[in-house]
Design a protein around this nucleic acid. Structure first.
Lengths: 204, 204
DNA sequence: ATATTTACTAACCATTTGGTTAAACCTTAT
DNA sequence: ATAAGGTTTAACCAAATGGTTAGTAAATAT
C-alpha cells in the first residue's frame, strides 16, 4: 500500500498548493495554509518538495503544461486560419471557464520573474509561431484574408480570448454583471470573438 | 519651510511606494524596501500612512485615478464610434508605454481583493457604459456599423489595448522580441488595433 | 527666550513564516 | 519476529516583518 499512499499524499499537496498559489500568488501563499488545505502536516511539504520555491515551480510547470496544448490548436494544425481561429476561441474559452485562475496565475508570475519565461523556453514544447506565420502569409497571398502582420493577429487572438479572464473583476464592474451573467457573457464569446476576428480579416 | 518638507517627504514615500508596490505587489512589497527607496526611516511610513494597508490603498487609488480619465475618452465624448476607437487606442497605448506597470498592478490587486472594486464603484467617476451603448446602438440603427453587442465590443476594445501590457512577457516570448522590438511592436498597435476593430465592425 | 507642536530616528517588540529535527509509525522484505 | 526503510508528526528555530515607542531635532507660536 506504500505506493498508493505516497502518490496520494504527494498529489494532495500538489492539489492544495495549486489552489492556494493560484488564488494568492507566490508571496501571498502560506505553507501552513497549503498544509491545512491538504489536511496534512506542514513538514510533509518539505519532505516531498524541499522548499516553497520548488513546490511553487511544480505547480507552475503543471499549470503551464495545461496551457501549451491549447496553443498548439492554433499554431500547429493544418486547417485554415478561419478554422484555427474558430476552434481555438471555442476550446480556449471552454477550457478557461473550467480553470478560471489559470491565466491570471501565469501572467502574474511571469511578470514577477522574467527568468521564468526563459526557463520555459528552454523546455521543449514551448509554442512556436513559425507555422502560423507561414499559413497567414500564404492565405494573404491567395487573397483569402486581408493583409495583416501575423504576429499582430496572433496577439489580437490571444488578447480577445484571455482578457475576459484576466480582467474578470474589471469586466464585471464595467458591465454590472453578477457571477451568472458574467458567465453567460463569456459563454457567448466562444463564437462572438471568432466572428469578430474573422470579420476583420476576411475580404467581403 | 514646514509645509514644503512635509509635502516632499509624504510625496517621496508615495513615489517610492508606487515603485515597490507596482513591481512586487502588496504581499511582495516590504516596508523596509519602500523606506530605503524613499531614503527615509521606516517609521516615517507609519507616521504618514499608519499601516502598510493604508499606504497601499493610497498608491492604488492614485493609480486608478490615472486610468479612469483614459476610459472617459471612449465612454463619454460625443464623437463617432470610429473616432472613439481611434483616439482611445492611440491615447491609451501612448499612456501605457509611459506607465507599463500600471495595468498589471491594477488587475492583479483587483483579482486579489474583490471588495476593492466595490469600493471603487462607490466613488464618483467610476466609468459608466450607458452613453457608449446608446451610441453604438444608434450607429447600428443608422447602418453605420454592423450589429454587435456594445458590451462585447467594449471588452474587445479593452482586451486588444490592455493585453499587450498585461501579457508583455508572454508576447515577448512568443514573438522572440527583445525590449526594443517589443516597443516597436506595441508602437505599431496604436493604429493597427484601431484598424483591426473598425475593419470588423464597419460594413464594406 | 521659551514653550509647544511637528518631523524624524534608532532601538525595540511580538508575530509570522519557511524550514529543521528527532522521534514515532507503518509497511515490507528477510 | 524483526530489521530496514520510507512516511508522518509535534515541537522547535532563526530570520524577517509590520508595527511601536521613547526620545531627539527642528520649526512655530507666545
Amino acid at each position: 500500500m506504500r505506493k498508493e499512499k505516497e502518490a496520494t499524499t504527494e498529489q494532495q499537496i500538489l492539489d492544495a498548493a495549486k489552489d492556494v498559489f493560484q488564488s494568492k500568488g507566490m508571496e501571498g501563499a502560506r505553507m501552513q495554509e497549503i498544509a491545512d488545505v491538504a489536511g496534512i502536516n506542514k513538514a510533509m511539504l518539505h519532505y516531498y518538495y524541499r522548499s516553497k520555491q520548488l513546490l511553487f515551480e511544480a505547480v507552475f510547470k503543471n499549470a503551464f503544461s495545461l496551457l501549451a496544448p491549447q496553443l498548439n490548436i492554433i499554431l500547429n494544425d493544418d486547417s485554415s486560419i478561419e478554422d484555427k481561429i474558430r476552434s481555438f476561441t471555442f476550446n480556449y474559452t471552454s477550457f478557461m471557464m473550467k480553470h478560471p485562475y489559470l491565466p491570471n496565475f501565469i501572467i502574474q508570475e511571469l511578470n514577477r520573474n522574467e527568468d521564468f519565461v526563459l526557463r520555459l523556453k528552454e523546455n521543449t514544447g514551448f509554442p512556436n509561431l513559425e507555422k502560423f506565420k507561414a499559413k497567414v502569409d500564404a492565405e494573404i497571398n491567395q487573397g483569402l484574408i486581408n493583409p495583416i502582420d501575423a504576429e499582430q493577429l496572433f496577439v489580437n487572438i490571444l488578447a480577445l480570448n484571455i482578457f475576459p479572464f484576466l480582467g474578470k473583476p474589471l469586466v464585471k464592474a464595467f458591465t454590472d454583471k453578477d457571477e451568472k451573467t458574467y458567465k453567460e457573457f463569456v459563454e457567448r464569446r466562444k463564437t462572438e470573438v471568432a466572428d469578430f476576428i474573422i470579420n476583420s480579416i476576411k475580404q467581403t
